[in-house]
Design a protein around this nucleic acid. Structure first.
Lengths: 223, 223
DNA sequence: TATTAATGATAGCAATACTATTATATTCGC
DNA sequence: GCGAATATAATAGTATTGCTATCATTAATA
């Protein structure tokens, strides 16, 4: 039994993959393959072959590839929320909490030994490379009702509450943090692939500085 | 002959669609259908049927659906650059230029009567709903070399130059404007589909206020 | 008029995204 | 230990997609 368990809405799977050995192998191998070949190239057939199972078995856990991606990404946000809560235990000022949140979003994530079937670092790279694909679809409204974006919403709400402690007058905290979170992803991508869209050098320090300054300046109420 | 002509890199098509009647019909109908059914559901067969031509003919203009999307999106950025240049004629302060740029990014675009085969308003909604899909692929590095992201890079460079007039010391102008541009898209999407990720009400005013304030506060060098 | 270019018509193929059926193995309650 | 239920494997099959190829027709051009 794991000490901690990230729970993902049951709308995000057909059959809970965390409950069986095959399910965990599907998760583990999906993460590995999706990072290697990208979402588009991945198929359930490839996952099945890689774990020496069958396509039909993978379909018992996830309706389709899109649901699998939504599952993984929600797992990631759930995980990040746990991490944030842990970190906040010893952080007292809202400024420090926001700074640390930005760091967690951008810095490479270590693997948690308690959850051997999920490689958090690899999963983070999947989120960077694939995240917008789960909401940029025609099914977004239906899937929103089913909780496909719950994890992201929660992170955004948490950061909003912290920001309002610094400046209760600030009008656009949700917009700000959805922007910050998505910039955290896209700047990582740009540094590696489209460097003209970023000023950051390799490594995460510049991105952290950029986002931290952006956040704190924007919510400050001077001027 | 059109008075103005948006030029798109020849790597973004197989055969220039602006040069023939069929090509223009493909562009026109692609825009209409892609907005209606979304990128994923659109196929060359559907475009062909809708314009009473054949799949093979559409393939003569674009290698595949991805290239078509890249073409349309680059056309949009080229168009936006023209619009910006027009507006800047009568704007003198860099602050006003940035404010106007944000407005152009977010406010619904009117159709230009000189270019009847492209509905700029519809195209703008396609950009909002599909933009990240052109770079979030495993082919991004190759396609970057072929100029798939040229239009976006240019807009980002232009805004960077303006910001540096306000504060030549600001360290992250490219990062800032890639963030602002992508937030301009995603906030529009969130207001409509994922309202918990935004504080803006329907209509573009709130988004414009949010982005303008964010931009100006961030590049200011006080504090 | 001959040549070339553009389009249409049709066919075909490999891969994908599923669904269905049946067989086999494992576990669980009694 | 037996029967029932459950999980998985094995296999097959289907509709659609994404794309290529071939050849005929039409239009533009030299």
């Amino acid at each position: 039994m794991n000490v901690l368990n990230i729970t993902v809405s049951h709308k995000l799977y057909q059959k809970n993959p965390e409950e069986t050995d095959l399910g965990k192998r599907i998760l583990s191998k999906s993460i590995e393959l999706m990072e290697q070949m990208g979402y588009e190239q991945l198929t359930f057939k490839k996952i099945a072959t890689a774990i020496e199972s069958t396509e039909a078995s993978v379909y018992r856990y996830f309706q389709n590839k899109h649901q699998l991606l939504a599952y993984l990404i929600n797992w990631y946000w759930g995980w990040l929320e746990v991490k944030l809560a842990q970190e906040f235990i010893v952080l007292n000022s809202p400024e420090n909490k926001l700074k640390r949140a930005v760091q967690l979003l951008v810095a490479p994530m270590d693997q948690d030994a308690r959850i051997p079937h999920i490689n958090e670092g690899t999963l983070q790279r999947i989120v960077v490379a694939e995240y917008p694909k789960i909401y940029l679809t025609k099914e977004v409204d239906v899937e929103n009702k089913e909780g496909y974006f719950h994890g992201y919403n929660r992170i955004c709400d948490i950061l909003t509450m912290i920001a309002l402690q610094i400046n209760p007058e600030y009008k656009f905290p949700h917009s700000l943090f959805s922007t910050i979170i998505s910039a955290a992803q896209s700047q990582q991508f740009f540094v590696e692939h489209l460097p003209r869209l970023s000023d950051a050098k390799a490594g995460c320090e510049d991105i952290i500085d950029f986002l931290t300054e952006l956040t704190l300046k924007t919510i400050s109420n001077d001027e």
